[in-house]
Structures are given as C-alpha cells and as structure tokens.
Design a protein around this nucleic acid. Sequence first.
DNA 1: CTTTCATTCTAGTAAATACTGGAATGATTA
DNA 2: TAATCATTCCAGTATTTACTAGAATGAAAG
Lengths: 218, 218
Amino acid sequence: MQDARKIKDLLYEQVSRIGKVFSSPKRLELIELLCQGEKTVETLANEASISVKLTSSHLRELRMAHLVETERQGKNIYYRLADKSVADMWVQIHTLAEDRLIELQLALQKIAAQPDDLVPSDRESLMKAARKGEVVVLDVRPSEEYLNAHLPFARSIPIEELRQRLSELPKDRSIVAYCRGPYCLMAADAVELLRQEGYSAIHLREGVAEWAVASKAA
Amino acid sequence: MQDARKIKDLLYEQVSRIGKVFSSPKRLELIELLCQGEKTVETLANEASISVKLTSSHLRELRMAHLVETERQGKNIYYRLADKSVADMWVQIHTLAEDRLIELQLALQKIAAQPDDLVPSDRESLMKAARKGEVVVLDVRPSEEYLNAHLPFARSIPIEELRQRLSELPKDRSIVAYCRGPYCLMAADAVELLRQEGYSAIHLREGVAEWAVASKAA
DNA sequence: CTTTCATTCTAGTAAATACTGGAATGATTA
DNA sequence: TAATCATTCCAGTATTTACTAGAATGAAAG
C-alpha cells in the first residue's frame, strides 16, 4: 500500500511538471507568441519585454517539459511549439481563466470595451460574409505570422504599416481586425485607427489558435 | 506603450493563477478525486494521504481560483468542482503530460503493464459489446462515486467488496474494469484479482472524466 | 455543553522560483 | 579574427511555496 502511494506521487509529480510550465505569466506570454509561429530567442525577448537571458531560461523550462522544439538556422535558433496540442492547451487554460476569474473578465472589459467586439458565436456568419466579400477580415500581425497561419479569407496589413496603407481598404464594407488573441492589443489599436479614419471597423478577439480550437469543437 | 505592458502583465498574471493551481501534485490529486463527485475535506485528506489542515489549505487555493464550490451539509463541508470545464482541464493536462513526457509514459507502463489494457480507440466497440451484453463493464470505485456518474451499462462493485461478490460476475464473458482514471490503481487490482479467480478481465484506463472528454471529441 | 468537522492564525523550516548581473563558452557567419 | 546569437555558470536577492505543529475559532449535531 505504501508502494501504491509512491507510484501515485510519482505520477502526479510528472503531470505537475506540465502545470508548472503554465504557472508563470512570462512563460504563458512566450507560449502565446510561439502559437503565432516559430521565433528566435531575441524576437521572443523583445516581444515579451524581458532580457534574452531570462527568455532563455524560460525556454529551457519549456524544452525540459518537451513542449517546444528548437532548430538552428544560421546564427539564429528558432523555437517552435512541439505539437499543436500545446497551442490548444494555451487556449484551454486562458479560456478557463476567463470563465472562472471575475478579475480577468473585468480587466478584459477595460481594454477595448467596444460593444461590437466579435464573440465566438458569430464565427459561422463571419466566415459566410467573408466568403462573399461582404466584410474584410484583416490580420494586423507581423507578416511572418500571417504567412505561418491565418484565418480563412484574411488579408495581411501589419499594424505598423496600416496608416500608410489605409487606401487598400474599402470604406463601404466592415473591416474585421484580429491579431494574436484576446491579450494582444494590436487589433484594438487597429480598430481605433480605422474608426478615426472613417472606416467601419470591428474587433475580433480570437487569434488563429482560438479559432482552431473553436472550429474543432463545432 | 508602458501602459500596454502593464495591461498585458496583468492579464497573463491572472491566467497564471489558474496554471498555478495545476502545478502542485497534491492539488492535481484532489482535483481528480473531485472529478468523481463531491467529497468532504476528511475524505479528500484520507484519499490523498495528507493531513486535513494541508488539504484545507490546498482547497483554499482551489476556492480562490473559483475552481471549486463548497456546501455545508450538517457537520460536514462538501467540496465539488465549480464547473465541468475543470474536470475537462484535468483530463487535458494529464493527457498532454502523457503525450509529451516520456518519463510519465514509462511510469504508466510499469503499473499494470498488461498487453490488453483498453485504449481510447476501442471506445465504440466496447460500448457496442456492452449494449449487447457481450462484456460486463465493471465500476470498482466506491458506490457513491458510481451513483454520482458512471459509464453507460456499467455495474458497480467497489473494490473492497469484490472478493465476496465474485459470484455476481459471469465467467463466460469478458469483464472490463475501470476506476477513477489512469492514475488510480483500483481497476488494476481488480483485474489482478479477477484473473486469479479464473475470470477473463480487461483493464480500461479511462475514468468518467476521460470518457466524457473523449466522447465530446468524437 | 461537548464532540465533530473544518478553518484560521501563528510560527517555523526547507526548497523552489523569478529575476538581476558579470563572465565564460560555443556555434555560426562574415 | 571579429561579431552575432544563445546558452550556461556563478553569485546573489526577494518572494513564494509546501509542509509541519500547536492553539484558537466557528458552526452544527447530539
């Protein structure tokens, strides 16, 4: 019976290794970034606003849990998620957090509290409209991330280029902007800019990872 | 821009609160127990082999993350999962751990390394056979857990009563035993006992939580 | 009023964690 | 050879965590 306890302790201990990875805010941010495609350590460090050394140590934790893989390309080392299921887990955990934590719901309402933010229920109708060309789905992430994966029918204009490339967008149709996910502020900024310039813009909170999970569930 | 950083930090911080809950082996064990139905603090402490006080403090963490609810019934306080999605998350996280951690795979192979353990792919055929009465699906958990939820067509004989109630089981058909999930040893023990007594017994690794997630995905 | 169940407070230990900085190492490219 | 990208080692700090034990508190049952 003592033997059984030891075995159980060992098993839960192993599972907790995965839980530990998801228990650090910065590691969560790195995982979300890696959901957009492979990236170098330097890119990850800059995006997450931490030092390369600290990034390296967080990535080490991810590697030791076998949640990421590395590949050397010239001078750079690229990190990527080891499996699609890691991206799914990120979506599951932040969704659970949004469902259970009132504090998180309030924080999310504060940023971009537009009444017309698109929520998952609109998914099919959005795709139908996008297919017909009734709306423009706009991906405002860096173009490498768009090239790695993007929503169906989406057009790419990175947020930094948006102001100069406004003329590419129609004023007679709604523009649905999205970015990395609900914790990324790029789409919210894009919507603000577009509205100032007289466009009809809507903020889609989901990123490609959230979209993928939602599509599977449907 | 500094403002944006602060907002992001706050959001990831909140999500990490949920991750932290799943980063402790004992809390994972408590969650798995609560997946079987509501339980008192004392029961949880005994099952997890820890003191009531420590159990209480772990449950406090779960409460503060709004993952469990409590209800007073007479002298006892019953804990239960606040939502089905918490049970789903437990299944997702231990599944991810099993997929990614070789150490966990090896540990699981050691316990009950029977070649005929049932794996998820057999789910539909198992149900078909159970419906026709070709196999007996046996739930060896305590009867309260069986009453709370059990697999379709399952019969309940708690592991402690199994030896005395062997005569209730047929020798001409296969007996598929299951318990709380892959980290619970009751079904493995039951299979061992049944085989010693001349029964044809098979170990189903999934519990009701795993079954529910798998059924949704299919 | 006592017992039972459960939480909380205080207090303490041991270990792990997140982060910083400096210096060394290694691999690759130019 | 020098520069770049990344990791690692060493050292140190601050914080958090898991756990133990003793004592007090509270809520309900008998």
